[in-house]
């Protein structure tokens, strides 16, 4: 059975698309057959982060409305043979997606032998976000160590607990927290919520912690998901998170301040 993973957050701009792209690539790099779907109808962006924006011919809504086949709309990744992208529609009609349409696409992907389906949720708690999470088996809630993001994540955790197919069937969907844009030095200075603070407020353990890094912007500039940059701390942190998602035991990295030398302490840097 294909495992459906929703990447969600409530708040916008916290790194959902970056995370979806990296998780999808990380799974594909391990040889899994992966589809990653952009649910943000009207604001397509996953294609840019994945670097396939010029190859979008048909989109998710075209498929659900029968204007194209799934095969025509799936964009094959240039780096991994087992990775496919389904772009969001640029239509302004927010109701273009229906529950039945989404369910059929997910079922067809399952029948095509996909191992994982990564659903990149739009921000907010409206229809697109609801449809992205409804069929999920696993949820990754992306959170920044910042008050509005943490509060919104709690709202999303509440919805995951009640508004999914699993919840309606009386099953539980175990959500994972992924803390992004984490700055160990600001945490050490008492200026930023720590991992423990966020875990305590939300009552959940983190799946991974991705440090704040300029590499993330460089990666999106190039259309190369940051997980592919193995020199980068953010890329390695994403790879750890994917490993943990698959049940591997990986210790947390990049969550403490690097010891600085005397001169850099003195002159800043």
């Amino acid at each position: 059975m294909a495992e459906i993973i929703v990447v969600t957050s409530g708040k916008g701009g916290v790194g959902k698309t970056t995370t979806s792209a990296s998780i999808a690539c990380g799974l594909a790099r391990r040889g899994k057959k992966v589809a990653v779907i952009d649910f943000d109808v009207g604001l397509r962006n996953l294609d840019l982060i994945m670097g396939c924006e010029r190859r979008v011919v048909y989109d998710f809504v075209n498929v659900t409305q029968g204007e194209a086949t799934l095969k025509q709309a799936l964009i094959k990744d240039k780096r991994f043979d087992t990775l496919f992208i389904l772009a969001a529609s640029q239509t302004r009609d927010k109701d273009a997606l229906s529950k039945e349409g989404v369910e059929k696409v997910l079922r067809d992907l399952h029948n095509d032998g996909f191992d994982y389906i990564v659903c990149d949720s739009p921000a907010g708690i409206e229809k697109g976000a609801y449809l992205a999470m409804y069929f999920a088996d696993t949820a990754v809630v992306v959170v920044n160590p910042e008050v509005s993001s943490v509060r919104d994540s709690d709202r999303i955790l509440g919805l995951l607990d009640s508004k999914t197919r699993k919840a309606e069937n009386g099953e539980t969907l175990k959500p994972h927290l992924l803390l992004t844009r984490y700055s160990p030095s600001r945490v050490a200075g008492g200026e930023m919520l720590s991992i423990q603070d966020v875990e305590e407020v939300l009552g959940l353990k983190t799946l991974g912690v991705v440090p704040e890094s300029g590499d993330v912007l460089n990666a999106s500039n190039k259309g190369e998901p940051v997980i592919l940059d193995l020199e980068s701390s953010a890329g390695q942190a994403y790879d750890d998170a994917v490993g943990r998602l698959l049940g591997e035991d990986r210790p947390l990295r990049f969550t403490t301040v690097d010891k600085k030398g005397f001169f850099s302490k003195l002159f800043g840097g």
């Binding site: 008050v147 709690d154 945490v187």
Partner: peptide
């Protein structure tokens, strides 16, 4: 050191 203020406010509102 504002992180502790953030944590306390979040505890209450959440």
């Amino acid at each position: 050191e504002t992180a502790s203020i953030a944590r306390d406010r979040l505890r209450i509102i959440v």
